[in-house]
C-alpha cells in the first residue's frame, strides 16, 4: 500500500490571512435522490450525519455532509474511514439509483482563517462574503478565479475550500497572493 499524501504536503502561508492545506481527510461523494428516506438512513448509518437541506452543511465532530447539488452530497470523514463509508452506503442502497464513491485522493482542501479571511476569498469569487450574508451552515459552490471550488465556514473565522487536486497548486497560489501583506481592502470593516 502506497503512502497517502496531500496534494501540497501541508503547504502553509501567513499573510493578512492564514492559508493552510488541510491534513489528509476522507471524502465520499454520493449521488442519488436526496429526499429519499432510505438514503437519509444510509447516510446516517454509514457516515454519522444527517442529510443537509438545500446548500446546507451538517457537521458532527470530524464528520460533515455538504449539499453539492439537488442530487449530490459530499461527505467528509477521517481518511481511513472513507472506503468503508462508501461501501456501507452502497450496500444499504443496493438496487437503488444511487452511487457513493471514495474521492479522498481526488480533491484538495484548504483552510483560510483570520479576521481578513472573508476579504481574501471575496477577491477570488463572485460571491458576497459579508458577515450576515455568508454564514456558517451554508456551502457555496463557485469559482476561485478559474477553478471550481466549494466554500463553507468551518469555524468562527475559518473557511474551508475544496477544489480538485489537479488545481491545488493553482488555488493555493491564488489564495496566497490574495492574502499577501498590504493587500487589505477593508471591504468588510
Amino acid at each position: 500500500m502506497s503512502e497517502a499524501v496531500t496534494a501540497l504536503n501541508g503547504a502553509r502561508y501567513e499573510g493578512i490571512a492564514t492559508i493552510a492545506e488541510a491534513p489528509l481527510g476522507g471524502m465520499v461523494t454520493l449521488r442519488g435522490d436526496l429526499s429519499g428516506a432510505d438514503l437519509g438512513a444510509a447516510v446516517q448509518e454509514a457516515a454519522g450525519v444527517a442529510v443537509p437541506g438545500r446548500r446546507g452543511v451538517v457537521a458532527e465532530g470530524p464528520r460533515t455532509a455538504l449539499w453539492m447539488a439537488p442530487d449530490e452530497l459530499l461527505l467528509l470523514m477521517p481518511y481511513a474511514e472513507a472506503p468503508e463509508t462508501a461501501a456501507g452506503i452502497n450496500a444499504a442502497l443496493a438496487g437503488r439509483f444511487a452511487l457513493a464513491v471514495d474521492v479522498s485522493d481526488a480533491r484538495a482542501r484548504f483552510h483560510v482563517s483570520g479576521p481578513r479571511a472573508r476579504e481574501v476569498l471575496a477577491k477570488l469569487s463572485p460571491v458576497d462574503f459579508a458577515a450576515g450574508v455568508f454564514a456558517p451552515g451554508e456551502v457555496r459552490r463557485t469559482r476561485a478565479a478559474q477553478a471550481a471550488a466549494a466554500v463553507w465556514m468551518s469555524g468562527e473565522e475559518e473557511f474551508s475550500l475544496i477544489c480538485f487536486r489537479s488545481v491545488a497548486r493553482y488555488v493555493f497560489d491564488l489564495l496566497s497572493m490574495a492574502a499577501a501583506p498590504g493587500g487589505e481592502v477593508g471591504a468588510f470593516d
Binding site: 438545500r54 446548500r55 447539488a69 439537488p70 463572485p126 460571491v127 457555496r140 459552490r141 463557485t142 469559482r143
Partner: peptide, 10 residues
Amino acid sequence: NCGVTAEESE
C-alpha cells in the same frame, strides 16, 4: 436548482 443568484461568469 440550487437557488443561488450569481453573476454570468459562474
